[in-house]
Amino acid sequence: MPIEFKKKPGIVAYLTAGDPDLETTLAIALAAIDNGADVIELGVPFSDPLADGPVIQRASERAVALGVRLVDVLEIAQRLRAARPACGIVIFSYLNPVVRMGMTKFCVAAAAAGADGVLLTDLIVEEAGEYLAEMKANRLAPVFLAAPTSPDARLKAIAEASKGFVYAISRVGITGTQQKIASDAAELVTRLRRFTEPFGIPIAVGFGISSAEHVRAIGEFADAAIIGSAIVALIEMTTPTEAPAAVGRFIADLRA
């Protein structure tokens, strides 16, 4: 399994697949990896992204309007895997497109595409029986979210069910950038660590991370930083031709 954070903190880069188009998404993913990203989260655009802030909502809306589908995202994953055998690839989706495809079919296809893991935003551990069985059968890593509001009993269940890494949400709220990393984040990671440690599963912190300063701060208590909206906003502001290089520089600067 290539989900590995060699340097600390690791970098996970989220991309809304198909924004501005699928070819550019692939080019951006390659640039992100070549400039230090350890894992690419390929976001499946969805009509109703209720956990996302305005930046990812807009990206999702654009990609949905282009007709980008889950199968297209898996195809990008496959091409990314062929081009970069050592990078981590996580398929990041709301549940409904996966339900529509069928859970079994999706897991088989994701594994065949060379994905390492899957994160389903609106699937919590209690509802994940069949999902976990299919993930296991296909040797995929189920990545679950942990939130500052999750009590310890839930964090324990999340740590036990997760593979690859646990996605710790830095603060209550939706995706989007912020000035400072909330104190919630360190407190959550400390609580979560008790439960992930026995399994040796790393903790990646996401939501609101947009600068080298944030990444350094995350590095003091967590294993990796997840950058989403900041990258998606950068893609929104640049042309498709400029976007890969711009994202590459941005990722390189995060570790500078």
Binding site: A51, V99, M103, L123, E126, E127, G129, R154, I158
Partner: peptide, 27 residues
């Protein structure tokens, strides 16, 4: 597609219902 022994007990109407939300809202 999602009915497991765990979720069968809470908030189900046959196979429908359940709780499909981001983790932050579960508490």
């Amino acid at each position: 597609p999602m009915v497991s022994p765990v979720d069968a007990k809470v908030g189900r109407f046959g196979i429908y219902g359940g709780r499909y939300v981001p983790e932050t809202l579960v508490a």
